[in-house]
Computed example of a mutant assay.
Amino acid sequence: MGNLKIGILTISDRASQGLYQDFSGQEIRRVVDNYTSDSCDFAYCIIPDEEELIYDKLVYLSDTEKCCLILTTGGTGPALRDVTPEATERACQKMLPGFGELMRKESLAHVPTAILSRQTAGIRNQTLIVNLPGKPSAIETCLKAVFPAIPYCIDLLEGPFMTCNPAEIRIFRPKK
């Protein structure tokens, strides 16, 4: 089916202004490159914490860029400008709260403030959207927890078949 098209959307006022380097988006790409055996095309964007911009970019990456997976980073906390989950819920037809529940559970083993995180996931058309935390060190923890379900979810959405590196991650697909 060709290359996997994956969107990486960094939501950060300061990174979007060039005030600091986007280590979170880079970490997502590093982890995904390690986990997948496929050739991936990445659609990479950095935008400020503005709900309408986040919504518009999620719709664009799904509907125009045809990403099978969009991974966001940032904007999932309780701060007033943290609006990524709200934009994600608006963009999605179906929500998958288990992703956020599992990411919080795994993160709690490392930091008690994980209960403040509002990560979620959902489906827009044939795209899986997953909100990850903004802290680079938390990205691998969260992706390691939820990635085993991602290829099968993409299968269920009739997206491209994703193969993964078994030395890095064990994915789950039900036996046929």
Rank of each mutant, 00 (worst) to 15 (best):
G74A: 11
C40Y: 10
T36P: 03
L53M: 14
F42M: 06
P97V: 03
R124P: 01
I46F: 10
R29M: 14
V31N: 12
Y55T: 08
L71S: 03
S62K: 11
V31F: 09
R118F: 04
E89N: 00
V32E: 11
G122I: 07
T113H: 06
Q26E: 15
Q126E: 14
E52Q: 15
L61M: 15
T73G: 07
K57F: 13
V32G: 08
G100W: 09
Y55N: 08
L58W: 06
E27N: 10
K66W: 10
I28Q: 15
L102W: 09
E52I: 11
T36S: 13
A79P: 08
D49I: 07
L80Y: 11
D82V: 06
P97H: 04
A114I: 06
K105L: 14
T73R: 03
T72S: 12
T76F: 08
T113Y: 09
L96F: 11
T84H: 03
A121V: 07
Y35L: 08
C67W: 00
L71V: 04
E52F: 07
S117Q: 02
Y55E: 07
M103V: 06
T113W: 02
C40H: 08
N125H: 14
C92G: 02
C45K: 13
Q93G: 13
T113G: 05
E86S: 02
P48W: 03
M103W: 05
I46H: 04
N34R: 14
K66F: 13
T84M: 00
E65G: 07
A114W: 03
L58C: 10
L96T: 01
I123C: 00
G25L: 06
H110S: 11
T113R: 08
I54H: 05
K66S: 12
A109N: 11
E89L: 02
V111G: 08
R81T: 07
I54W: 04
E86F: 00
L61F: 05
T113K: 04
E65H: 12
R104G: 01
L96I: 15
P112G: 02
A43E: 14
L108C: 02
T76H: 07
C67A: 11
T73A: 15
E51M: 12
L96G: 03
G98T: 00
G25Y: 07
E106W: 04
D63Y: 04
T73S: 15
K94M: 09
H110N: 11
P48Y: 05
K105D: 08
D41G: 05
V32S: 09
I46N: 12
V83R: 05
V111W: 04
R124N: 08
K94W: 11
P112N: 01
N125T: 13
A43L: 10
L80T: 10
A87N: 04
K57V: 10
L102Q: 08
G98F: 00
H110M: 04
L69A: 12
I54E: 08
Q119R: 02
L69N: 13
E51H: 05
L61R: 03
R118C: 05
E106R: 14
R118A: 01
L71T: 06
F99K: 01
G74W: 09
E101C: 00
A79G: 15
I47W: 10
I46W: 05
D33T: 15
V31A: 09
V111Y: 10
Y44N: 09
E52H: 10
F99C: 05
A121S: 13
T76L: 08
A79L: 15
C92S: 01
Y44F: 14
I54Q: 07
R90I: 00
Q119F: 01
D41S: 13
C40R: 06
P48V: 12
S117D: 03
E65M: 15
P112M: 02
